[in-house]
Amino acid sequence: MNMAARIAEAHVGLTGVTRVFGSDPQTQVKALGPIELELRKGEFFAVVGPSGCGKSTLFDIVAGLSPATSGKVTFEGRPLTGSAVPDGIGVVFQEDASFPWLTVADNVAFGIRRAGLSEAEVSRRVTATLALMGLADFAKAYPAQLSGGMRQRVCIARTLVQRPRLILLDEPFGALDQQTRLIMGEELLKLWRETGATILLITHALDEAAMLADRIGVMSARPGRILDIVETPWGIERDSRVVSDPRFGDITGRLWSRLREESMAALATAGQ
C-alpha cells in the first residue's frame, strides 16, 4: 500500500467535541474543546499540550471511556457513545496496568481468552505477540519480576494481541528513563509499520512527538483546543536517529513557540 492511499481514508473524526465537568453553572469547569480533528487511517498522530489542558480527557473520549458533553465522535464511520470501548480500539495507559497475579503469558492472553477464542488460537497468538515484543523468554515470569519498561511492554502486548485497528497511548513511556524511552519509541514505530494500525499518542514530551509522529496536534491551555497541526518530513522507515537531523530542531522549536505562552497560561491558572 503506498503512502498516499494509506492516509487518504478518515479513521477517527471529532466535530465540535467539548467536555464540561459539573452541572452547576457557577462551579462547572470547561475542560475541553470545541475540538475539530480527523485521524487518517494508518497514520501516527501525536497530541502535545501544556499540563492540565485536557489531553487525558480527549484520550478518554476517543477511547470510549467517557462521553463528550457535546459534539460528535466517530470511529470507522460509527458514532462513539462513551459508554463502552468499541471493538478494534486498543488502549495503553501511562501507569502499569499489568495484572500482578498473572504470568506475562496469561496477562497477554487475558483479553482474547475472554473473547472466547480457542485455547490453540490463544496460545498461537500469544506466542507470536510475545516474540514480537521481545518477551518470549519471560512468558512464565510475573510482572513484579520485570523492569518498568518490560512491564509496559506486557501492557502493549496485551493490547496488540487483540489486533486493534486504532491504538491509543496515553503517555505510555512517561514513567521510564530517557534512554528506555528512545528504545521503546523505536519499537513502537516498528510495531506501527508491521500492524498498519492507526496510532494516537498523547504526550508532554515535544521530542518524543517530533520523532514518532506523522502529524502533531498542539493543544491550547484549558479548555484545550487544537491550535496547530505540525507535519513531520520523516519517511515511514524512521527511527530514533532523526533526533540528529537538523530539521528535528526546527520542528521542536516550532512546537515550543506555539506552546510557550499556553504553558505559561496553564502554570498561572494551575493554582486556582
Binding site: L65, A84, V91, F93, Q94, E95, D96, A97, F99
Partner: peptide
C-alpha cells in the same frame, strides 16, 4: 489503582 478500573472498562 485507578488504571485497573480503566482497564476493566476497556475490556467492557
Amino acid at each position: 489503582p485507578r488504571v485497573l478500573r480503566k482497564t476493566v472498562a476497556i475490556y467492557g
